[in-house]
Each structure stands twice: as C-alpha cells, then as structure tokens.
C-alpha cells in the first residue's frame, strides 16, 4: 500500500541530524517501548510484518508528527487491541490511572523463563527463509521491471522503483512473503533478488546506483 512510511525520495526533508555520540535511548519510555516490542514479538503475539504494517497504517499526519519509538508504541497498541489480547477501553482506563498517579510503578510477578526464551531467539535468530520447490525465475544479469501496481495492504516494494527497469545483481534464498504474512494469509515464500536501478532513471538526476531487495512477485521480465 501507499503509506507514510515509504519515504525513499520523498521531497521536503531537511538535513540529517547526525550525532555520533547520541545515547541508545533519549527517554526511559523509549527504552521500555523497545523492550516491550521485543518481548511481545518473542512470545509470538504478532509477527514482524504485522508489526510493520500497524505502523504503516498510521494516518500520514500522525506518522510524521510522531517519533520512531512512538510509532512502535502505536503499533503495539493497534496490534494488541485488534488481536483481542487487550481491550481498548481497559487499556485507556489504565493510561488514565497512571496519568493520575505518575509515580506508580508496574507491579506483578517476574518471569525469568521468558528471558531464556528471548535469549534463544536472540542467539539463533528468527529466520524467515523457507525452502521452495521451484527454481528462481530470474538469474544474475537479467533485466527486470518492478511491478507498477500499488496493492492494498502490506508490501515491501518501495514506491520509488515501481515501474522502473533494473538489473538482477544477486539471487537470494526464498523468504516468507510479507504481503500475505502481515495479513495472516500464509507464508507463501518466494525467491528474493538484489536489483540495481540507475539513479537517473529513478530521479532524473544523480549518477549513483540504488540497489533494492525484492520478492519475485514484485518483478516482471523487462520485455
């Protein structure tokens, strides 16, 4: 889908605020949002694509007005309430309670086993590569075109390459297709490709090359 997250080439942005010495988190609540996202993902309350899609569905003005970790917070709130893990009214009532008593801490039981589960995920990863019976449709050096249609729902094809011609530079393993996985419509793994695009074709300026990683169904033969 077209969404506010798809920022490649978007006009109107100023300088990058680069600070080599910035802290990992600017605020403690951001630290908590990061940890909560990792925790809820580890226990499988939602998948990675679903999590991304919840951020992408934010209204564009809200997406632009919020910082990175606030977008993560919105995604958790969206997913956990939509999936029925938490009830929206209960969640809001609890927010009001903490607003009225800001020094109140979260109370309850520890769960050391959960950290062990996270340790396993951390060490071994959560790879989304899957074997597929079909060979890759494209080979290194093939000329391809990125599809032009903007489907509704989640996708990982950046808008700026849609409809443009590129060259396959590397063939990668098959991975779970985000377009279906984000919507609980199955994994449907496809081969993925590293495809090079000429900047001048994309932006009508620039002498660089842009390489994008895409799933097989995001491509069609060039002719």
């Amino acid at each position: 889908m077209d969404g506010p997250h798809d920022l490649g080439g978007a006009p109107g942005f100023g300088p990058v605020r680069f600070d080599p010495d910035e802290p990992l988190f600017d605020h403690d609540w951001q630290r908590k949002v990061f940890g909560l996202t990792m925790a809820t993902s580890t226990i499988g309350l939602y998948n990675r694509d679903e999590n991304r899609h919840a951020r992408e569905r934010m209204p564009a003005a809200d997406y632009r007005a919020t910082g990175y970790f606030e977008q993560w917070l919105v995604a958790m709130e969206t997913n956990l309430t939509e999936l029925g893990v938490l009830d929206a009214a209960t969640l809001r009532a609890r927010v009001e309670e903490f607003l009225a008593a800001p020094d109140e801490e979260v109370r309850g039981k520890a769960q050391p086993d959960l950290f062990e589960l996270f340790r396993d995920t951390l060490e071994f990863g959560a790879s989304l590569d899957r074997p597929v019976p079909t060979p890759p449709r494209y080979a290194v050096g093939d000329h391809v075109r990125a599809v032009s249609s903007a489907k509704p729902g989640h996708t990982r094809l950046p808008a700026y390459v849609r409809g443009h011609l590129g060259v396959v530079r590397r063939v990668d393993p098959a991975f779970v297709l985000p377009d279906t996985n984000a919507h609980h419509e199955g994994e449907h793994p496809e081969h993925t490709y590293n495809v090079a695009f000429n900047a001048h074709d994309l932006w009508e300026k620039g002498d660089h090359e842009v390489r994008v990683d895409v799933w097989e169904s995001y491509l069609e033969p060039a002719d």
């Binding site: 605020h27 908590k32 909560l36 925790a39 917070l73 709130e77 969640l91 609890r94 800001p102 801490e105």
Partner: peptide, 12 residues
C-alpha cells in the same frame, strides 16, 4: 507517553 507505556506493560 510514559503512562501509555506503563499501562501496556502492566496489563501484559
């Protein structure tokens, strides 16, 4: 934001 994060954590 702090209250929203605490609310989420405490309910989980």
């Amino acid at each position: 934001l702090r209250a929203r994060v605490k609310a989420l954590e405490s309910l989980l």
